[in-house]
């Protein structure tokens, strides 16, 4: 499978779905429109600075709160190639897998990687490399069942292939 490489945007604990995509924009479900407001209530600069392939790194409980799939959709449509966190809230975790946004749990990497670092993630091995600091981390690999959904690039394709 593919790998991700990009510049890191770093956030703390409990980044909730309301700051990822505020509900005032949920009268739309268009990915590009959602992406235009991604992270707006926690980081107004994000959408102006993010480039295709960039990576979000956060600490505990990323994506807590609402079940809105608009949150991972906004992140993916903003060009983010991977989210690394200590832990993810469970609905966000499911949603990210189901829409094909790569996410990876790795407490050590989540704590140590800094904003602006260049980071590479190999999805097959789960190895995360901080190119700036020249350090590597072993992220948690997905169970086989979830890997199949990811390989199919989401639940819809997975069901269609069955």
């Amino acid at each position: 499978m593919k790998a991700a490489k990009g510049t890191v945007f770093k956030y703390g604990d409990n980044v909730d779905t309301d700051v990822i995509i505020p509900a005032r924009y949920l009268n739309s479900s268009d990915p590009a429109e959602l992406a235009a407001h991604c992270m707006e209530d926690i980081d107004k600069e994000f959408i102006h600075k993010v480039s295709q392939g960039d990576i979000i790194v956060a600490t505990k409980n990323f994506g807590c709160g609402s079940s809105r799939e608009h949150a991972p959709i906004a992140i993916k449509a903003a060009g983010v190639s991977c989210v690394i966190a200590e832990t993810f809230a469970r609905i966000f975790y499911r949603n990210a897998i189901n829409i094909g946004l790569p996410i990876i749990e790795c407490p050590e990497a989540a704590r140590e990687i800094a904003a602006g670092d260049t980071v590479e993630v190999d999805f097959d091995s789960g190895i995360i490399t901080d190119v700036t600091k020249n350090t590597t981390y072993q992220g948690q690999a997905f169970p086989e069942f979830m890997q199949k959904i990811i390989d199919a690039e989401g639940l819809v394709n997975y069901i269609n292939r069955k």
């Binding site: 499911r94 949603n95 189901n98 069942f145 819809v156 069901i159």
Partner: peptide, 18 residues
């Protein structure tokens, strides 16, 4: 339990969820 829209879609289509 709460899920996202794609899980809901799969649930509506198949009557099953993982």
């Amino acid at each position: 339990t709460g899920v996202g829209s794609t899980d809901m879609a799969a649930g509506m289509a198949t009557g099953k969820a993982w």
